[in-house]
C-alpha cells in the first residue's frame, strides 16, 4: 500500500474508532459516505494521487474528530462516551485521557525491565488492564502490547534455565520491544489528542441545551 493510501486508510480507521458509540447501521452509513467521498475525489485526480492530493482531500474532509463531533451531536447521553462502546460509563472515558499512552508505555518499559522480580507483577496486571480497556488502541495493537512483557520474561527464563548465551538474540528482541512501545505511544497519543479535541468542542454545545 502506498503512503498516501495508508494515510487515507488510517483516517477512516480513526473515524471508525471515534464513532464506536453510534448505532452500527448509522455508523456504517457515515463511514460509507466518507469512503465514497474519498474514492470519488481520488477518481478525479489524473494518475496516481500525490501527497498534495491526499493532503487536500483530507483537509477538505476535516479531522476525524470534527466528523465524529457532528455525528454525536444531539446525543447528550453519548457525548462523553464518544468512543466508549455502547455506554460502559465514565471510567472508560477516563482511560482516553492524554496521560494514558505515556503511562502505559513507560509503565510497560519499566515493569518489563524489572519483570524478573514477582513484586512488579501486580502493577503489570494493572497497566495491562488499562491498555486492554482503553479505546485508544486497536485490538491487534493491544494484543502486541500485552504480549511484550510475558514474551520477554519467558525468553529470559529460558536463558537462565538452559544457560545458553542468547544475549545478542535477547538484545535484538529488546529493541523490537522498545520500537513496539514507541509505536503504541505515538498511536495512542495521537488518538488521545483527537479525542480531547472532540471533547473540548462537545461541552460547548451540550452546555446550552
Amino acid at each position: 500500500m502506498s503512503e498516501a493510501a495508508q494515510r487515507l486508510a488510517r483516517y477512516q480507521d480513526d473515524l471508525a474508532r471515534l464513532l464506536a458509540a453510534l448505532e452500527p447501521a448509522e455508523r456504517a452509513e457515515v463511514l460509507d459516505g466518507v469512503r465514497e467521498h474519498i474514492e470519488g475525489a481520488l477518481a478525479e485526480v489524473p494518475g496516481e494521487a500525490s501527497e498534495a492530493d491526499v493532503n487536500r482531500i483530507l483537509a477538505d474532509l476535516g479531522s476525524p474528530g470534527q466528523v465524529a463531533e457532528a455525528a454525536l451531536a444531539d446525543r447528550p447521553a453519548a457525548q462523553h462516551l464518544v468512543t466508549a462502546a455502547g455506554g460502559s460509563g465514565r471510567w472508560r472515558e477516563q482511560l482516553m485521557g492524554r496521560w494514558v499512552p505515556p503511562t502505559v508505555t513507560i509503565g510497560l518499559l519499566v515493569i518489563g525491565l524489572l519483570s524478573f522480580t514477582p513484586f512488579v507483577w501486580i502493577p503489570l496486571v494493572v497497566v495491562l488492564a488499562v491498555l486492554v480497556a482503553s479505546h485508544l488502541w486497536s485490538v491487534p495493537e493491544k494484543a502486541l502490547g500485552v504480549a511484550i512483557v510475558p514474551t520477554g520474561l519467558a525468553l529470559m527464563s529460558l536463558y537462565w534455565i538452559t544457560g545458553k548465551d542468547r544475549l545478542l538474540f535477547g538484545l535484538g528482541l529488546g529493541l523490537v520491544a522498545i520500537v513496539l512501545l514507541v509505536v503504541l505511544a505515538i498511536r495512542g497519543s495521537r488518538r488521545a489528542a483527537q479525542h480531547a479535541h472532540t471533547q473540548r468542542s462537545a461541552p460547548a454545545s451540550g452546555g446550552v441545551s
Binding site: 473515524l15 448509522e26 452509513e29 457515515v30 459516505g33 466518507v34 467521498h37 477538505d60 474532509l61 476535516g62 479531522s63 476525524p64 470534527q66 466528523v67 463531533e69 457532528a70 455525528a71 451531536a73
Partner: peptide
Amino acid sequence: LMNGEGTLYPLLARLRK
C-alpha cells in the same frame, strides 16, 4: 455552515434515518 466536508455524512445519515 460546515467545518469540513466530512461533517456532512453524519447529517445525511440522520436525515435518511
